[in-house]
């Protein structure tokens, strides 16, 4: 009960005002760069490549002048999940992951065996998830939600002709992010109110599904009813302000990319291209050999 503060855990979409290089980048450029790095992270399965990517992301975090601990917080919160994931991968070894070569057994105990393939899978998937979490936080911490939404809208605009509702998607994104803190606070209030009435949301036997669900009703009903009421009120307020969808709408401001933005985009593009082109698998093997030789 010491820290019943849900906002602490609702960091999704939160914006931390600042004036760093990263903060000032054009949101469209930032989104494209984000996409490129995400692709690079997703397609790299060598140790070295993931190490370099993690370092690059930390460098960006440094450039954004966000407090390091806060930037890494979501990764820290996800740690238990990552450990569980790693254990699963250990029990169900992936024989073909990585190089496609045969897997060498590194360590064995009864039925459990750790091959170099499994090790790679565990290390790389953990690194990837951490990289993606930190990267997402970096994007939302340094970009105003409204900029993010208009960025998405602008990037999707060319697809509007083939029926992609760019404006509606952007608005939905923006409203969703706008209400994350509001809903977290509402949830917190409901939990507190029901706790004060003697409700117990603590541990329960994990096999009594019905009982557990029933126990959550005092939380879920007010949350859903409240959420629906809130969205009804929001829709009404939007309608009262003449909202009828994207058609016929104008915009107060439009982002304009400058020289720095393009330089940043080219740098990120070049970096990701390099990550794609360089054969990190071979470098990894060379590294292993060198390490083995040194020993």
């Amino acid at each position: 009960m010491k820290r019943l503060e849900f906002l602490r855990y609702a960091t999704l979409g939160q914006y931390l005002p600042g004036d760093s290089r990263i903060h000032r980048l054009d949101p469209r450029i930032k989104l494209v760069a984000f996409g490129l790095i995400v692709a690079a992270v997703t397609f790299s399965n060598a140790y070295l490549a993931n190490g370099i990517l993690l370092l690059a992301i930390l460098l960006l975090l440094g450039l954004s002048r966000l407090p390091l601990g806060y930037g890494l917080q979501s990764a820290r919160l996800a740690l238990p999940a990552l450990v569980i994931l790693a254990l699963f991968q250990l029990v169900m070894p992936a024989r073909q992951f990585g190089t496609g070569a045969t897997c060498a057994i590194i360590w064995q105990w009864r039925l459990l065996q750790l091959t170099d393939c499994t090790l790679r899978l565990i290390v790389v998937s953990t690194a990837r998830l951490i990289a993606l979490l930190v990267l997402t936080n970096l994007l939302t911490f340094t970009t105003k939600t409204s900029d993010l939404a208009t960025g998405v809208e602008d990037l999707l605009a060319p697809l509007q002709r083939i029926g992609v509702p760019a404006h509606e998607l952007a608005l939905t994104l923006s409203i969703a992010l706008r209400f994350v803190p509001t809903l977290a606070l509402q949830m917190e209030r409901v939990v507190k109110a029901q706790t004060a009435r003697g409700a117990d949301f603590g541990a329960s036997s994990r096999f009594q599904v019905i009982k557990t669900t029933r126990r959550l009703l005092p939380l879920l009903v007010p949350l859903f009813v409240g959420g629906l009421r809130r969205s009804e009120r929001l829709a009404l307020a939007m309608e009262a302000r003449c909202y009828t969808g994207g058609r016929g709408r104008s915009r107060r401001t439009r982002a304009r990319a400058g020289l720095t933005d393009y330089v940043a985009l080219i740098a990120v593009g070049a970096f990701c291209a390099a990550m794609w082109v360089i054969d990190f698998g071979a470098l990894d093997r060379a590294l292993w050999l060198w390490l083995a030789g040194a020993r």
Binding site: T145, S146, I175, R178, A237, R241, C242, S250, R252
Partner: peptide, 17 residues
């Protein structure tokens, strides 16, 4: 609706095009 004051105030006029 919006995430900054100025964007929110602009929402109505934007809708009017």
């Amino acid at each position: 609706i919006a995430t900054t004051v100025i964007d929110d105030v602009a929402f109505g006029p934007e809708n009017l095009g």
